Amino acid sequence: MFTTKEVASYYDTTLIHYRQWWGLKKNLSLHYGLWTKGISSFSEALANTNKVLLSHTNIDSKSKVLDAGCGVGGAAIYIHQKTQASITGLTLSKKQIEFAMAAAQEKNIVDAVNFLEMDFTYTTFPSETFDVVWACESICNAINKAAFIQEAYRLLKPGGQLIMCDFYKKSQQQKDRKAYMKKWGDTWGVPQFETVQFFKSEMLNKGFNRIKTFDHTSDIKKSAKKLYRAALLGALPSMLYNVTHPKVSYFAKNHYKCGYYQYKALQENLWEYQIITGYK
């Protein structure tokens, strides 16, 4: 079980890895890309994740959006460029904030997007501040996922929408003979994985309605395989680096393994990738 400080350390430590593996400077994305019909490149797939998520919302120029777990700001920038909405992004990582602010300044939109170091499960915003709470592959890192659902409900205006996409374990009772899911989480700063049903139940309990799910597991398989290949290519250099730098941090030492474990777990049908939406 990780602490919020350790989750922050994961993202601070591995930012350099995402620069190399995921083309971070160009793509501004740490998430899986969705390879739907007509997508022909990895960069297109990454942008398509934001496009598909946005298609499930009614965000417009008057909307106030909270990006819970904003990463390096790519989604916030995308949403604003497409809708002119006002976006506030939250992350635990100081380095991600610096990266996101630099990207916003480069695109001359610093007045429309704001990035703060804050735990999205316990924020300082007044109740009913936002029209949409957006979370892309970030709630997996929450220590208390039920607390996030409760906080999202508090922060949303009446009629407001929660939309999140993430990787979810298939069932609470599944047999993971080689502990791929735990090993994946341990190398990716994920305290524990939960099921889609867990989130649907929590949303219902907190008062959300019109809850819908959209399964995109088949659309992320190319991205999962790309991450797997990166892990294989990076294994030897990483092991050699670990030998010559024995005091390197846990995540720096083990991060390359996450690509291997997530793909093996996917092959074992232990997780799925879905979008979940609901309204207050």
Rank of each mutant, 00 (worst) to 15 (best):
F115K: 10
L116A: 12
E117Y: 13
E117V: 15
E117S: 14
D119R: 06
D119M: 08
F120H: 12
F120Q: 12
F120W: 09
T121G: 12
Y122Q: 15
Y122G: 12
T123E: 04
T123K: 01
T124K: 01
T124G: 01
P126Y: 00
S127A: 12
E128I: 05
F130I: 00
F130Q: 01
D131T: 03
D131K: 00
D131H: 05
V132P: 06
V132M: 00
V133T: 06
V133Q: 11
V133H: 06
V133Y: 13
W134V: 05
A135T: 11
C136P: 04
C136E: 14
E137P: 06
I139Q: 08
I139H: 04
I139C: 07
I139P: 05
C140P: 09
N141L: 02
A142F: 05
N144R: 07
N144M: 10
N144A: 14
K145Q: 13
A146S: 14
A147C: 06
F148L: 11
Q150I: 11
E151K: 02
A152L: 08
A152G: 08
A152E: 08
A152I: 06
Y153T: 10
Y153H: 15
R154C: 01
R154V: 03
L155E: 08
L155D: 10
L156T: 02
L156P: 03
K157A: 04
P158W: 02
G159V: 01
G159N: 05
G159Q: 03
G160R: 00
Q161H: 00
L162W: 04
L162E: 06
L162A: 04
L162Q: 05
I163Q: 01
M164W: 08
C165G: 07
C165Q: 11
C165K: 02
C165P: 01
Y168G: 07
Y168S: 09
K169H: 10
K170C: 05
K170N: 13
K170R: 13
Q172T: 15
Q172S: 15
Q173V: 13
K175D: 11
D176G: 07
K178Q: 15
M181N: 09
M181Q: 11
G185V: 03
G185Y: 01
D186Q: 10
D186F: 07
T187F: 00
T187E: 08
T187S: 14
